[in-house]
Amino acid sequence: MVAYILKRILYMLITFFVIVSLSFFAMKLLPGSPYRNAAKLGPELVAQLNHQYGFDKPIPVQYINYLNKVLHGDLGVSFQYEGRTVNSILASKVPVSADLGIEATIIGVLIGIILGAIAALRRGTWLDYGVMVIAVLGISVPSFILAQLMQYYFGVQLRWLPVAKWDGIESHIMPVIALAVGSVAVIARYMRNEMIGVLGSDYIDMARAKGLSRPAVVIKHAMRNSLVPIATIVIPSLMTVITGSLVIENIFAIPGIGDQFVSSIVTNDYPVIMGTTILFSIFFLVGIFLTDLAYGVIDPRIRVAGGDS
């Protein structure tokens, strides 16, 4: 098991390096300049600024310098916010986004699993069809459409909930729902299919043949086995949540990292773009790693296979 974990960590480092390199060069291909009024500054001033930030050096040299700084934990200084380091910007935005993301994921996964299980247990009834209709809608309606519909009806028309901002529990409801609906839909569909397969398997008959009650059969035998594949799609659905949050944070004016990321790209704020990308990629890599570990905890067959390798 230890060897397995070490191997996975090594792969993570390699992946991380590739992501940082690719994003660095991709970013250099972005059109535009980081200086807001480059035309008014005049060529001399621009040249001086370029020298100050090291942009006059060839790109490979800039790349090496940047990598060196990243290895020392220094993500640079923002161009847009004078004197603020990228680290401090990220640190102030992350808690808000994490809050939103975690709430949306927990709600999405829980509701998805419950709806999927109910649909499977009541297969072929109106409950099943109802859940599947919700799932298809959830997958096909983009979160930003749903967000704006909710803003209009619950915020503007009915005035039940605040239209935007991020203070107080009421302001969380709409953005969390908008973000979670996609995962609810995906997970409910997976869960339903898994559960139907598991319910038809011999060991469920066997459990019933022991005389266990229906709830005991469902909870002890069917649920756990259906959850194995679900563990692997929690992270992809988390990714949906994160990419979704780029837009949702904008729509609801939530001062999170997604909102920050979008504006940093618009303004060519190189250090913030890179810093955010690095943060996201670390987050994804760790998430995928944890998924694999969780897989092993749920399914003992994988635990052993991993330990042997």
Binding site: A207, N225, R301
Partner: peptide, 12 residues
């Protein structure tokens, strides 16, 4: 049951 490969719960 017929098939011992599938009649035991793999996660228990």
């Amino acid at each position: 049951f017929q098939d011992p490969m599938t009649s035991l719960n793999p996660t228990m």
